[in-house]
Design a protein around this nucleic acid. Structure first.
Lengths: 210, 210
DNA sequence: AATTAATTAGACGATTGGTCTAATATTACC
DNA sequence: GGTAATATTAGACCAATCGTCTAATTAATT
């Protein structure tokens, strides 16, 4: 099941110059990201995260204080990554505002397809299991939504200026609805293993703005 | 943490007349329902399900073949329960079609509030953790959505007849969008511990039908 | 009364979970 | 160049988890 990479890792103190050699930590984060977007936090064991990149258990607690701390850092990383992705699309002046949103949507659909609809959204996954998670995650996750929402709202405002959507649209509210529905669509895409929910919802949403 | 009820259970073969005394199984299902809607499948231990209603482990494996079988039965029960609830509202001829949907929505919001937004939707929860669940759950969960969708679609058709919504509406598609978004809204309601997502999404949706 | 059926009690073992301490490899410092 | 400092790993450790299994208890059936 788990592909355990027999990579022999460098022991002992690492050379100072190649300080970039905190590769292990990055590996752990990447592995965790993959697994947590697939299966969530509680059902993913440390062993699986470690085994996938051939890192021994001892290392884990060298880099992270606990599994919870690891999760928290993962959210942080996911957020920065995703904010960049959003900005890349939504601030792309070579496209009209609404087309930028559509480009983002299509890129995400392609991404999910590439992973065979096995991976979902980290924030959505953790949100759903909130009942079993440390309470400190809640605020962190809520904040992410706020940041994402602001970006969409801004884009919608610009779409108004460009006369792509009705000026009567409440951008903040619409952005809120977008993320709410989008998370639902990601969930169903994972369940149905198809892009249908993503396409149907986004088409509906975009159409509702006119 | 776990409130263990010191309920003394009747041991031995139960009296025939009070055949209704298969209460234990019902208790387990109820307890499981509570916990799984809160925390999902993987993070809920058998011991917690049992402890809450003071049932010993031996009983569990008398009534259910495995944790997986238990989960599957829970989905089945949840579905029948929810289908009844939907029918109760959506087939209530004392109200106009769209008002029935609104009544359902309001009832659900009240229900979530009653549980302090700690409990979500069983189907949504399990859908999200699908990556860690037995593959057999997938079809079961997808079917539930189809049944729910049909009920909403029918209601929307009737709303057309009653001239409450535009005849141009594609009822099936709109019903699909509704459940997609609604699951997302339930997720956020749990995360935000507030009814805002439920209210905002449903208002937006209903408005979009006009 | 003896036997059979239904149910609970709870010990048990294998496995996995997260955590922690001691050992080890490497570099830095004097 | 030898010793101290430090980053990293190895793997022991214990608690929890799932599932199983046998004994005990009670009622129905004969």
């Amino acid at each position: 099941m788990t592909v355990l990479a027999p990579i022999k890792r460098r022991r002992g103190r690492p050379p100072k110059d190649q300080a970039a050699f905190s590769e292990t930590k990055a590996d752990l984060i990447r592995s965790g990201m993959e697994l947590l977007t697939e299966k969530g936090f509680s059902s993913t064991g440390l062993d699986e995260i470690l085994g996938r990149v051939g890192v021994p258990k001892g290392s884990f607690y060298h880099y992270f204080g606990s599994k919870d701390a690891f999760g928290s850092e993962l959210i942080k990383q996911y957020t920065t990554f995703f904010n960049h992705k959003l900005d890349k699309f939504l601030l792309d002046e070579s496209l009209a505002p609404l087309d930028r949103l559509e480009a983002f949507i299509n890129d995400t659909i392609a991404g999910m397809a590439r992973h065979e609809f096995k991976r979902g959204c980290l924030v959505g996954n953790l949100g759903q299991e909130m009942g079993a998670l440390p309470e400190s995650f809640r605020e962190q996750l809520n904040e992410v939504f706020i940041e994402w929402q602001q970006r969409i709202a801004l884009c919608l405002e610009q779409a108004k200026c460009a006369k792509q959507i009705s000026v009567k649209t409440d951008s903040t509210e619409a952005a809120y609805v977008f993320w709410t529905g989008w998370e639902g669509a990601v969930l169903r895409a994972k369940l149905e293993q198809s892009d249908s929910a993503l396409k149907v919802f986004s088409a509906y949403f975009l159409d509702s703005l006119k």
